[in-house]
Design a protein around this nucleic acid. Structure first.
Length: 225
DNA sequence: GTTCTAGAAC
DNA sequence: GTTCTAGAAC
């Protein structure tokens, strides 16, 4: 047995770069298993300075790095839900449309009670199609995108391309599609497509004119005030 | 998710 | 020389 193992590892050493890269891939996989690729929102959720609403099913917090004048996160929370990380986790639940409708009515309340008057009518709600942080959270953000925390192309495109899955569109889609994953309307199963949205040109969300870089986009946005 | 910074772009 | 981006580290 021992001799067999020795000879097999010797075999690997002698083989091509392919084998080495396969080994490397295995190492990467096991690291991914050990360390969650998602950062945690838990400390923000518990932070009383950030929390604006809580009941037994949902919690709402101010985004720690707001990308607009108003920016909140609404999070399914508590024993009523299994562990939700990705949008796909939510879609797989039998009662997902009910949950999304709950998010919708709660978000109206959050906007009414927390958004400054000048942006109350300019709220958009939705999910990033690839999460960086867990648990699953829905963004409630004002369309002005006037914020020092909005710094780069990925920030902008994560809210202003198909990378951002609008709550209303998701609800409509799920009502129509008997099995969402047959058609995968939002490309949730195609990470490469989703990531490519983040590199798109910087198109103004009001007039669609493309700006060459972030500083010029930010200056341009102010002209729509 | 953010911060930092090398080097590309201007 | 300055501005801006993008990738590594966290």
């Amino acid at each position: 047995m021992k001799r067999l193992q020795v000879s097999s590892s010797k075999g690997l050493n002698l083989t091509s770069d392919k084998a080495k890269s396969a080994l490397k891939d295995e190492a990467t996989k096991s690291n991914t298993k050990k360390f969650s690729p998602f950062l945690s929102l838990e400390s923000s959720i518990k932070d009383p300075k950030l929390q604006v609403f809580k009941n037994d099913r949902f919690v709402c917090i101010k985004d720690k790095y707001p990308k607009a004048k108003a920016h909140y996160l609404l999070i399914p929370h508590g024993d009523a839900f299994p562990k939700l990380i990705r949008v796909a986790d939510l879609i797989k639940l039998n009662n997902c449309v009910d949950i999304l409708n709950e998010l919708k009515s709660l978000s109206d309340k959050i906007v009414e009670e927390n958004f400054p008057c000048d942006v109350k009518s300019k709220a958009i709600c939705g999910f990033h199609s690839i999460q960086s942080m867990q648990p699953l959270h829905m963004h409630i953000i004002s369309k002005d995108f006037e914020s020092d925390c909005l710094k780069n192309r990925k920030h902008w495109n994560s809210f202003n391309t198909k990378y951002f899955i609008r709550l209303d569109e998701l609800i409509e889609c799920l009502k129509k599609e008997r099995d969402y994953f047959e058609n995968d309307f939002f490309n949730l199963n195609n990470e490469n497509v989703l990531k490519s949205y983040l590199d798109l040109p910087l198109k103004c969300n009001i007039c669609n004119i493309v700006q060459k870089n972030m500083p010029s986009l930010k200056r341009h946005l102010l002209t729509h005030k």
